[in-house]
């Protein structure tokens, strides 16, 4: 049998495949049967928060910040309650990160404010002397892509049964109808900010990336 395998590259390849696929079959597949169940009270992200999550991904905050509080006293003292699986039920993709060049952000909404984030994203060293985080001034002028965020909400509602309301429909009209709600959310954030340009942009219907990002960060609790 081994002789035959050594002589038959195709069946040899099949053999290799079985051996390497084994771990995945046992370790990973069965977990999908018990797909992540949300913890009680967990709400899906609003469209503005989703747009903020996109900013978080686009500027790749996760290359330096984790969103995973491990069950050690040193971590719960510093960041709060350790993370639970159900809290991530609506995270596609997961954004745990793998490196803490900066602190963990899983519960940053508990101890940082809109105002703090505004100053910090503009110039981190003004808020935290010695910080090596770059300033993200371009987030104050770039406009967040809320339409794509809405498309994401509709997609996860239709494909993965994420509990969004009936008004989330895969039509242009439904999006136009929902848009004022997103703008209203953005205005609430902008009201707590002091940058004049931001307030004007939001009033004109353009949501700067930083507003969406702050909405997302405030939601992390």
């Amino acid at each position: 049998m081994f002789h035959w395998l050594e002589k038959n590259p195709f069946f040899f390849a099949v053999g290799v495949f079985i051996v390497i696929a084994f771990a995945g079959l046992i370790e990973i597949l069965p977990n999908f049967a018990e797909a992540s169940r949300p913890v009680v009270g967990l709400k899906p992200y609003t469209v503005l928060e989703l747009a903020g999550k996109e900013v978080y991904k686009k500027d790749n905050c996760l290359s330096c910040h984790s969103q995973l509080i491990r069950p050690f006293k040193a971590e719960t003292d510093r960041y709060g309650q350790y993370s639970l699986s159900g809290e991530y039920a609506y995270d596609r993709p997961f954004l745990w990160g793998s490196k803490r060049t900066g602190p963990d952000l899983h519960r940053v909404g508990n101890y940082r404010t809109t105002d703090w984030h505004e100053n910090h994203m503009w110039e981190p060293t003004d808020v935290v002397p010695g910080s090596i985080m770059p300033a993200y001034k371009h987030q104050f002028t770039n406009v967040a892509d809320i339409e794509t965020a809405y498309a994401e909400a509709v997609t996860v509602k239709n494909v993965f049964a994420t509990p969004y309301g009936d008004e989330f429909q895969a039509t242009k009209a439904a999006w136009e109808a929902h848009k004022p709600k997103v703008l209203a959310d953005a205005q609430k954030i902008a009201a707590d900010m002091k940058n004049k340009d931001i307030k004007e942009a939001v009033a004109a219907g353009n949501i700067p990336e930083v507003v969406a990002l702050i909405a997302y960060l405030n939601r992390l609790k």
Binding site: P93, F94, D145, E147, A149, Y150, V154
Partner: peptide, 17 residues
């Protein structure tokens, strides 16, 4: 999946959390 809304390059992961 959303009837042509938003950026064509964007996608969401099949798996969550």
């Amino acid at each position: 999946a959303s009837g042509g809304l938003g950026n064509i390059l964007h996608s969401v992961s099949m798996y969550s959390g």
